[in-house]
Structures are given as C-alpha cells and as structure tokens.
Amino acid sequence: KKRTSIEVSVKGALESHFLKCPKPSAQEITSLADSLQLEKEVVRVWFCNRRQKEKR
C-alpha cells in the first residue's frame, strides 16, 4: 500500500484536534476523516503515529 502524504493544512487540523483529544473515538475519527476528505484508516493511523511520537 502506498504512503499517504498529508497536506500542511490538513496536518494543522489534525494537530489541533490532537491537542484537544489525543485519543479520539471511532465516531470522532469518522467525522474528522469525512470533514478532511481522508480515509478513516489514514486518520486512525495518523493519531496512532502521533501518540507514539509523543512518547519518544
């Protein structure tokens, strides 16, 4: 599967949402994915990776 490159504006939106809620529910992920026109899986993986980055 190809890597999904996420645009800067979209990254900003994800980042601000992450600061409010680092662990969104499935429903939040779905609505966020719909509003940003991304697949749910892409958003879910982005949050997983972002939480891991926070640990480092």
Rank of each mutant, 00 (worst) to 15 (best):
K1F: 09
K1D: 14
K1N: 12
K1C: 12
K1R: 06
K1I: 05
K2A: 08
K2H: 06
K2S: 08
K2W: 07
K2N: 05
T4D: 13
T4I: 14
T4Y: 07
T4A: 10
T4W: 04
S5H: 14
S5F: 11
I6Q: 07
I6Y: 07
E7P: 15
E7C: 13
E7R: 12
E7S: 15
E7D: 14
V8Y: 15
V8G: 14
V8H: 15
V8E: 14
V8F: 14
S9P: 11
S9L: 09
S9I: 08
S9G: 14
S9C: 09
S9V: 09
V10D: 15
K11M: 11
K11H: 13
K11T: 12
A13E: 11
A13R: 14
A13Q: 13
A13I: 08
L14K: 01
L14P: 02
L14G: 01
L14E: 02
E15S: 00
E15Y: 03
E15T: 02
E15H: 02
E15I: 03
E15V: 02
S16C: 07
S16W: 05
H17A: 15
H17F: 15
H17P: 00
H17L: 06
H17G: 03
F18W: 06
L19V: 11
L19R: 13
L19G: 07
L19N: 10
L19H: 10
L19M: 13
K20L: 06
C21M: 05
C21Y: 04
C21H: 10
C21S: 09
P22S: 07
P22N: 05
P22G: 04
P22E: 07
K23A: 09
P24G: 03
P24V: 02
P24F: 00
P24E: 02
P24C: 03
P24Y: 00
S25Y: 02
S25I: 02
S25M: 04
S25C: 07
A26H: 11
A26G: 09
A26E: 11
A26R: 09
Q27T: 13
Q27I: 09
Q27H: 14
E28P: 02
E28I: 04
E28G: 05
E28A: 07
T30I: 07
T30H: 07
T30L: 10
T30D: 14
T30N: 15
T30W: 06
T30V: 12
S31L: 13
S31C: 13
L32A: 00
L32K: 01
L32H: 02
L32Q: 02
L32W: 01
L32C: 00
L32P: 00
A33K: 03
A33Y: 00
A33F: 03
A33N: 00
A33S: 07
A33G: 02
A33M: 03
D34K: 15
D34R: 15
D34F: 13
D34M: 13
S35Q: 13
S35F: 07
S35G: 12
S35R: 14
S35C: 09
L36W: 04
L36K: 01
L36M: 04
Q37N: 10
Q37V: 05
L38M: 07
L38G: 01
E39N: 07
E39A: 07
E39V: 02
E39S: 11
E39Q: 15
E39L: 02
K40T: 09
K40Q: 14
K40Y: 10
K40P: 12
E41R: 05
E41P: 03
E41W: 04
E41H: 08
E41T: 06
V42Q: 09
V43Q: 01
V43Y: 00
V43F: 02
R44W: 05
R44D: 13
R44M: 07
V45N: 12
V45G: 11
V45A: 14
V45I: 13
V45P: 02
V45R: 06
V45L: 12
W46C: 02
W46D: 06
W46A: 01
F47R: 00
F47Y: 06
F47A: 01
F47S: 01
F47E: 03
F47W: 04
C48L: 11
C48S: 12
C48G: 09
C48Q: 15
C48F: 14
C48R: 07
N49G: 07
N49P: 02
R50D: 02
R50M: 04
R50V: 00
R51T: 04
R51S: 06
Q52L: 09
Q52G: 10
Q52W: 07
K53A: 03
K53W: 05
K53H: 08
K53M: 15
K53R: 04
K53G: 10
E54Y: 06
E54Q: 08
E54L: 06
E54M: 05
E54S: 04
E54C: 06
K55Y: 12
K55C: 06
K55R: 07
R56H: 11
R56L: 15
R56C: 14
R56M: 15
R56P: 03
